[in-house]
């Protein structure tokens, strides 16, 4: 049952992630710089960017409406709420009624809805194409996410993310092979969802001038940049919470939580370092060929499902 302390924990972890998100995106920039054998702007550059943007003028295109103006706030808000429901420091979900796999997928759809809508609303052709691509990627990725999580949920007997994570951590799943394959296909879907190369489609900088971000400026752009960094962190935390819950606290004790926090931070840094290496060693996939890539995810998730059915 949801108690007050759970709610506080959820709030704490959402705000913690919000505070740390620019650091994580800064880390990605540093990895990129190192791979280019550059010096790099420093880990804290994204904090400086956001702070500066917040004091700049907010410019809006002439025909934009309320969807354009609302989007940055809606996106940041939604991702913060999702962050409250995902198990990060603990095995269980802090706010259980949000930490359901279906709810999380559909809450991401809320952010996606406004993100893409702002693309049309801005009246810029780059933004419109970016919005269309963002939704197309959603169409290609969401089924993979759902199937791989569904298999894990069936193995655990619950669609609650914390319950799935606990079952995996305790080894209470009937089919280890199915779990591993489901984890791999989910990781693949998550990687596409991160929007990094080679799947940098919607906010493609060189191709689409950052897609739906094209027309944003000043504080709105600051909020979006922050929200996108937060979204990338939350998405990775989602994977960690479900498939790599090792080290997280099973109760609410202070030291347990502290230990969980350290474990979570280490996992996050490792994953983002690995993502950074992949991102900088590949070229962009042509957009019209993306279904061929997402079919790999569908195939892997289906394989996990078959292994679950057979019970291996």
């Amino acid at each position: 049952m949801l108690t007050f302390s759970h709610l506080i924990l959820g709030l704490f972890q959402a705000l913690l992630l919000l505070a740390a998100a620019p650091l994580v995106s800064g880390l990605s920039r540093m990895v990129r710089a190192k791979l280019h054998t550059r010096h790099g702007p420093g880990l804290l550059q994204d904090y400086r960017d956001i702070a500066k943007l917040l004091t700049r003028q907010d410019l809006t295109p002439p025909n934009s409406g309320f969807a354009f103006r609302l989007m940055p706030a809606v996106m940041l808000t939604t991702v913060l709420v999702i962050a409250m429901g995902i198990p990060m420091l603990t095995r269980f979900t802090p706010v259980a009624p949000i930490g359901d796999l279906i709810t999380v997928i559909y809450l991401f759809a809320l952010a996606r809805f406004f993100f893409s809508l702002s693309g049309i609303d801005s009246g810029s052709s780059f933004s419109g194409i970016g919005g269309s691509r963002e939704l197309t990627m959603g169409v290609l990725v969401e089924p993979v996410m759902l199937l791989s999580l569904f298999v894990a949920a069936l193995l655990a007997g619950s669609t609650n993310l914390g319950a799935i994570g606990s079952a995996i951590a305790d080894g209470h799943v009937r089919s280890a092979t199915a779990t591993v394959i489901a984890a791999l296909s989910f990781a693949y879907a998550i990687y596409i969802e991160l929007g990094k190369l080679p799947y940098d489609m919607a906010e493609a900088e060189q191709e689409l001038q950052e897609g739906p971000l094209t027309e944003y400026s000043g504080p709105s752009l600051a909020l979006i940049k922050w929200a996108m960094a937060l979204k990338q962190t939350v998405v990775v935390a989602w994977f960690v919470g479900v498939f790599l819950p090792f080290g997280s606290a099973s109760g609410m004790s202070f030291f347990g939580l502290l230990f969980g926090l350290i474990a979570f931070a280490i996992k996050l840094v490792l994953i983002f370092a690995a993502v950074g290496v992949v991102e900088n060693s590949v070229a962009r996939v042509r957009f019209r060929l993306t279904p061929q890539h997402s079919w790999v995810g569908v195939g892997a998730a289906s394989l996990a499902f078959v292994f679950y059915l057979v019970g291996l």
């Binding site: 917040l54 801005s122 027309e215």
Partner: peptide
Amino acid sequence: MAFLPIALKTAFAAKRGGDRKVAAPWA
């Protein structure tokens, strides 16, 4: 949670020039 982005935007409102509409989207 929506209070957070709104508060962030308003907190720095005094420091920046007024919002305005530009002539056209970038093409």
